Amino acid sequence: MIEEEAEPEPRENAKIIGVTGGIGSGKSTVSKFIEEAGFPVYYSDVRAKTIVNDDAELQEKIKKLLGENAYDENGFYNRRYVGEIIFKDEQLRLQLNALIHPAVKIHFKNWVAEQTSEFVFKETALLFELKLNESCFKSLLITADDNARLKRVMDRDQKTYREVEAIMDKQMAEKEKIKYADFVIYNNAGLDELKRETEKVLANLKVIS
């Protein structure tokens, strides 16, 4: 009789590593490298985009804040409409974040409880802005020169220089993020170098764990 290999038990105290970076920095690419190395990655920003459609209670709260047009005729989150409103109104943007992020936080907590790895990685654009780094074991910032980030987003999203610049202006300055980060990867030299730098961070984490 062949014994089946037992499933790994979830860890009670997995070490959370926050992964962040401004628009066009390459944080999603680094997160993919981390996954390829065998570590679980939670994509907070992706989850936030789905939870607004999955969570009925959250939907009602968003409609109350932004109006019925926050969802289209098919009942799906009207991302373009919402984006236009909150881009012009900082208070509305903060209020919307205050609705969405607690729901993501609960989902993340449940996700962590299911993991078996010593390290779990949480990718989020607002790691430092929301002080989420305070609940992390370590934080990793991916950054790059402003011109490189601008060009990447313009090519990727077909946005104009001014449109991307306006988005960047609303984000925390890179020099401020660097002050908070435990590890910093500068993404200015191509994918091969970016992967090598990611591997260095992973190796360092194993040493200090």
Rank of each mutant, 00 (worst) to 15 (best):
I2Y: 04
E4H: 12
E5F: 11
E7M: 14
P10Q: 11
P10L: 06
R11Q: 14
R11C: 13
R11E: 15
R11F: 06
E12W: 03
N13S: 10
A14E: 07
A14Y: 05
K15G: 01
I16M: 09
G18P: 01
V19I: 15
I23M: 13
K27M: 10
K27L: 13
K27W: 03
V30A: 08
S31M: 05
S31F: 01
S31W: 07
K32S: 10
K32F: 01
F33K: 06
F33A: 07
E35N: 14
E36I: 06
E36H: 06
F39L: 13
F39D: 00
P40T: 06
P40K: 08
P40Q: 12
V41D: 00
R47G: 02
A48S: 14
K49I: 04
T50E: 14
T50Q: 12
T50K: 13
V52E: 01
A56M: 13
L58Q: 10
L58F: 13
I62W: 02
K64L: 12
L65M: 12
L65G: 02
L65E: 01
L66D: 01
L66T: 07
E68G: 06
A70I: 04
Y71F: 15
D72W: 03
E73M: 11
E73Q: 07
N74T: 14
G75M: 12
G75T: 05
Y77F: 15
Y77H: 12
R79K: 15
R80I: 10
V82W: 09
G83L: 10
G83W: 13
E84C: 00
I86E: 09
K88F: 04
K88M: 10
D89Q: 04
Q91L: 08
L92C: 07
R93H: 09
R93K: 15
L96M: 08
A98N: 14
A98M: 03
L99Q: 06
I100V: 15
H101E: 09
A103N: 08
K105W: 10
I106A: 12
I106V: 15
H107W: 06
W111C: 04
S117G: 00
S117L: 02
S117C: 03
E118C: 04
E118T: 15
E118D: 15
F119V: 12
F119D: 00
K122W: 05
T124M: 08
T124V: 14
A125R: 06
N133S: 11
S135H: 08
C136N: 10
F137Y: 15
D145S: 14
D146N: 02
A148W: 02
A148H: 07
K151H: 07
R152A: 06
T160E: 02
Y161I: 11
R162E: 14
E163I: 13
E163G: 00
V164C: 07
A166L: 10
I167D: 11
K170D: 06
M172I: 14
E174Y: 03
K175D: 08
E176A: 07
K177A: 07
I178S: 10
I178E: 14
F183M: 09
I185R: 04
I185T: 02
A189W: 02
G190E: 11
L191K: 13
E193M: 01
L194G: 10
K195F: 05
T198E: 00
E199C: 01
K200H: 08
V201N: 04
L202F: 11
A203H: 14
A203S: 11
N204W: 01
L205A: 11
L205N: 05
L205T: 07
L205R: 11
K206Q: 13
V207P: 00
I208T: 11
